[in-house]
Design a protein around this nucleic acid. Structure first.
Lengths: 192, 192, 192, 192
DNA sequence: ACATAAGCGAGACGGTACGTCTCGTCTTCTG
DNA sequence: CAGAAGACGAGACGTACCGTCTCGCTTATGT
């Protein structure tokens, strides 16, 4: 709740939003150029024109900083359409993820996916900002289509629902090209 | 050349094979639990009851050490069958990966797969020891089957070849169960 | 001038005198127990229940703050008697220092005396508030007595004038007891 | 015992004595020029051409480093003569302290004297390297002389024994000159 | 048989980054 | 305006590793 948050810190000098942006921006730039190991908090501070304490006041850890920087720059939009046209709905839903995994933030996203495996609190955040309600919604779309007879009888609803993300992440993680028609081809394979 | 190598060091005290194992074992254990960043050469040396120089004599770098440790312990067997039965051949080929992703090395493998994204030195080794020649061989099996008319006309050879690893890794990374019939279901989806 | 000062600040909320005392008191306590390095402006603010700005509005610097705190709490009274009885006059003058070095402020004083060696800003203030005009006055008393023939011929005026403070500080610094008759014994030694 | 010490560290690469000297030397130089607050471990490391760890391996703390540096460069020689000539013996004993307090190390010594007041383990070291057996020995010399009738009857043995250090430290601490004849004058005052 | 050459455990070395703490300044809100 | 709160740039603190480098010792070979 914004009210609750405001209550927590209604006194003292407020944090400078310009610092927030300078820090996250510098972190993303260095991360993209040099990778995780190339990020040093000291270097980020210098590049952002900021004191180290100003960073540590926001992020307790280098890992935390990097993850938040990525999240800030790589959040994936989350639609939940249900037009009755399964193929179209799935395309609409997964297009943002495909774009993100293809763009300059691909490395950020896959790194984020990784970090979440060891850091449980990140797993939750990963769910919120990357997966969102997609997984469950996709399953419902597919199940609805199956119920309508839009799919062949005995179709594997769970597997079909998984197909798009599985292939997209597989391509991203293996540096295979995420071409414009990849989603079409996956849907061709999965939906018949 | 083994002869050349042997010539290079035919004198002096030979390296202790027990050290090799102690080092690689300790490295694997720490890596699986703490990830790449959690591995410290000093810690490995202590855990293996070995001097740091004994490690650096074998591996020039922490990255090198970790790569070799994983390769030594998590290499996935690499069959290249071609019986003419596509489904059976694919099952034979992917079974080792499925087992590996299900067994005690699952954490090691997924950590390796993910960690290689931020450490390019790991990436190449991952290709060599985990992927090996599988990718190309699977593609050839599927292409052969398509040529024989075993698949429906216009089947997406590349995508079919990718399906098993894509779903297996997706399950592993999202902690979904890798059940005994998962490969069957994926093959059902992909081959018809 | 108090009139001029009052003119400068006849508007707005007046400074809270309770803050002055709380700040100085907290500073003295911490300084006596932990020394100059142990004093942190942030800590003083917290201990005094005061904001940092409230301190810096009064004292431009940590050194300034500490100096004022000590001066406020440990100033040694400064008599300048000249009754013609050298021994009595010296006793009158040094009694306050002896008391101060024996009382609860002893630690404060010795710490101040020592700390001033590494912090030149403290040195000047120490001269002003602890030594004051005592040194010169004592010398004049002794010189006067010598001129009157109250001392043996050829008496070392400078050394006699120094004797009381030298022994008092030596006892204080070495934690030797500063007994009631110490001044008498020192005067016995010095004046005959 | 040197044997015991040797046992403690008979393995591994031995510490480089050149580092010891470079570190202590740099520390003394900076301390003399800038005072305690001006010493930074990082700066000492740079000036000595040494890594920070090489300093912290030897001295757990900045304070520890500074004190050892001073001790290494400012130890006062400790004679214990007893020729039967009180005045000569006292001169022989206190000359080294006078020299030290007059020389380039005066600031080091007085700062050391101060630091010992808050750091109990330093008090012991101060006793060992600066005071040594002087205090007790001086008292015995004076008591012996009194017993021999070399002093006037009723002489204040304790105070006489204290006189030289008291005046010497007083002069040092107050930046009064420690002239060549100061000891003579103090002895004149104290011994008659 | 014994000298040579290398392996080994231990740990010091010059660096670099970490995350913490304080300094003195600044910015906001409340009384 | 004063005061409480606390953010800000700067930079030192003490810790932990990295990859390199001695030490003194042990262990095979090759003459």
């Amino acid at each position: 709740m914004s009210i609750g948050e405001a209550d927590l810190r209604r006194t003292g000098r407020p944090r400078d939003p310009a610092c927030d942006q300078a820090i996250l921006r510098a972190t993303r730039e260095v991360f993209a150029e040099e990778g995780y190991a190339g990020v040093s908090v000291e270097g980020i501070a210098a590049r952002a024109g900021v004191g180290k304490a100003t960073i540590y006041r926001r992020y307790s850890t280098k890992a935390h900083l990097v993850v938040e920087a990525i999240r800030d720059g790589a959040a994936v939009e989350d639609f939940a359409p249900d037009t009755g046209d399964l193929r179209a709905d799935l395309l609409t839903m997964m297009q943002p993820l495909a774009s993100a995994l293809r763009g300059e933030n691909a490395k950020l996203l896959t790194t984020f996916a990784m970090e979440r495996m060891r850091n449980p609190e990140l797993a939750e955040e990963f769910n919120r900002s990357i997966i969102g309600r997609k997984r469950e919604h996709v399953r419902q779309l597919v199940a609805g289509a199956a119920a309508r007879g839009e799919l062949r009888p005995g179709a594997d609803v769970d597997l079909i629902a998984e197909a798009l993300p599985a292939f997209l992440w597989h391509h991203a993680v293996y540096n295979l090209p995420i071409t414009d028609d990849l989603l079409d081809r996956v849907l061709d394979l999965a939906l018949r």
